[in-house]
Amino acid sequence: MALRSFVSEAEAELRCGAEGSGGDGSRPGPAIAKKSRKKSQNPNKESRNRKPGSPFKSFEATVHHRRRTPSLRDGLRLFASFGSAPDPTCEVTQLSPCPGKKSLADMEETLRTGHFTVIKGPSSGRRWIRGESIGRGSLGTVYQAMDQQTGELLAVKEVVINASDSADMKFKDQLENEIQIVKELKHPRIVAYLGHDYMGDSLCIYLEFMAGGSLAQALRQFGCFEESLLLAYTREMLEGLEYLHTRETPVVHRDIKGANVLVDLDCHAKLSDFGCSKRDNDTMSHTMRGSIPWMAPEVIKNTGYGRKADIWSFGCVVIEMATAKSPWGSFDNPMAAMCKIAMSDATPPIPEGVSPACQDFIRLCTRRDPADRPDATRLLAHDILKNVIVEDD
C-alpha cells in the first residue's frame, strides 16, 4: 500500500508539476546503476543497512523531514533499493540500467507499471555492468559491457523473452541454436563465445568485444577500402569460412554481410552473428535466411542451398568493401530486389575501381550456378591472395 500511495503521489506530481519538487520532476535522474556522489543518497548502501522489518522506514523518514511531495528521482531511488518488489529478503546482485536516456514519459511509465528489470545472481558467476547499445543482431540487441571482477570488456547480446508468446519462444529456440553453434567454434577468424546466462525474462550471450565495429560501419564512415586492405579482410573472412565449412559437422553461416564481419583493435576481421546459421551434415536448407542484397539466387528461389550460398554472400561483401555500397545498388522495394536476384540472369555489378585479378575473383564467387562457385579452400589458393600474408599479433 505504501508503494501504491507513493506511485500515485509521483504521478500527480508529474501531471500537475507539484511545488517543491525542484528539478527532480522536470528531467530524468541519473542512471540507476551509477553511484550517487553523495553517500547519503546511495540507495544500495542504505538497503544493506536497513533492517528487514521496515523496508520503507528510511525513505519515508527522509520524505517527512523534507516536507515535500516525493519526486520522480525519489521514486527511482526507491526502485533502485528494492527492485520490482519491496521484499527486504530479496537478494539483488545487479541492476540492469535502461539503455540510453529515458524521457520523462518513460520514467512515469516505469513508476506507474512497476516494470523495472532486476538481474539476480548469474548462473555463470559472471558479474557485469551494461554499457551503451552497440548494434542489433539477427535476434537481439547487443550492448557493450564490463566484467566487474576482471575489468574485461565484452559484448552482450540480449533478447527479452515473453514465455507466453509463441513467437518469442521461437526466437528463444533460435538463440539457443546460436549458442549451440558458437560455443564449439574456436578460431581466430570467429568472434569468440564467452558464455551465456538466463536473467529473469532475458537470455544473454557473452561474446568477444570487437572495438573496431563492423565493416559496414567503417564503410559508411570512411568510404570504400584500398585494394590492399580489401584483400587482407578477404583472406581473413575466407579463413573463417573455410573453418566453418570443413568442420566434421559443417556450419553454414547463411547471413554473411558487412554488418556481420567485425574488426578488432588489431584490425583483424572476424565473422559474427550466427543467429541464422545451420549446423548439420546435411547442409542443404529450404528456408529463406539472410539479408536480401547479399542472398544467393538459390536462397530466394527456395530450391535448396548449402555452403556455396555463403560463397555468393562473401563475394557480395567483397563488392561492398570495394564500393562502400550495397552489392546490387539501390532497389525501389524488397520485392524488386528479390525478383532481380532470383528471376534474372544478372549478377552483381563488378566494381571498376579494383584490379582485373580482383574482378575475376569476384566473378568466381558470384556465379549463378552454385556448382560453378569455388569453395573457400580453392578461393584461398587464388593468385590474388597468394601474396597476402596476415599475421595475428
Rank of each mutant, 00 (worst) to 15 (best):
E298G: 03
K270V: 08
A371V: 09
A336I: 05
T347P: 03
S291Q: 01
K325W: 01
T303E: 14
W294Q: 01
N333A: 12
P348C: 11
P348G: 01
P293V: 02
A269W: 09
S326H: 04
D360F: 05
C316F: 08
I292F: 09
I311T: 06
F361H: 07
A269C: 05
R279I: 11
M284N: 14
I292A: 11
W328S: 07
D282M: 13
S277E: 10
T347Q: 12
R378P: 03
P349W: 10
K325G: 07
G290R: 09
V317K: 02
V318K: 05
T287I: 11
G353L: 11
T287W: 11
Q359T: 09
D282H: 14
M321W: 06
T366N: 09
E352S: 13
W312M: 01
F314W: 05
A336S: 13
A337E: 05
E298A: 01
K308F: 09
R363K: 15
I311V: 15
D360P: 05
A296R: 06
S285E: 14
S277A: 15
P297N: 11
K270C: 00
W294C: 00
A309W: 00
H286S: 12
K308S: 07
G275A: 10
P356W: 00
Y305R: 08
D273M: 12
C316T: 04
S355H: 06
A296L: 02
F274L: 00
D360S: 10
M288T: 13
C276T: 13
A346K: 07
A357M: 06
F361L: 09
Y305W: 07
C276R: 04
C358F: 09
S277Y: 11
G290V: 02
C358M: 14
F361P: 00
A336H: 15
D360M: 06
V318Y: 08
T366W: 09
D375K: 02
R279L: 12
A342F: 08
I341F: 03
I292T: 14
A342W: 03
R307P: 01
A309E: 10
M335H: 08
S355K: 10
N333E: 14
G290H: 07
I362H: 11
K278I: 12
V317G: 02
I311W: 05
I311D: 05
G290P: 06
D280M: 04
A296D: 06
W294E: 01
R373E: 01
M335Y: 10
D273Y: 10
P351V: 06
L364C: 07
S277K: 09
Q359G: 03
D282K: 15
D280R: 10
M321Q: 06
N302D: 04
V299S: 05
F361C: 03
M321V: 03
D372E: 15
S285F: 11
N333I: 04
R279P: 03
N281D: 13
M321C: 12
S330M: 11
E320N: 00
G304Q: 06
N281K: 14
V318E: 09
F361W: 07
R363D: 04
R289M: 15
K301M: 15
D375V: 02
S344Y: 08
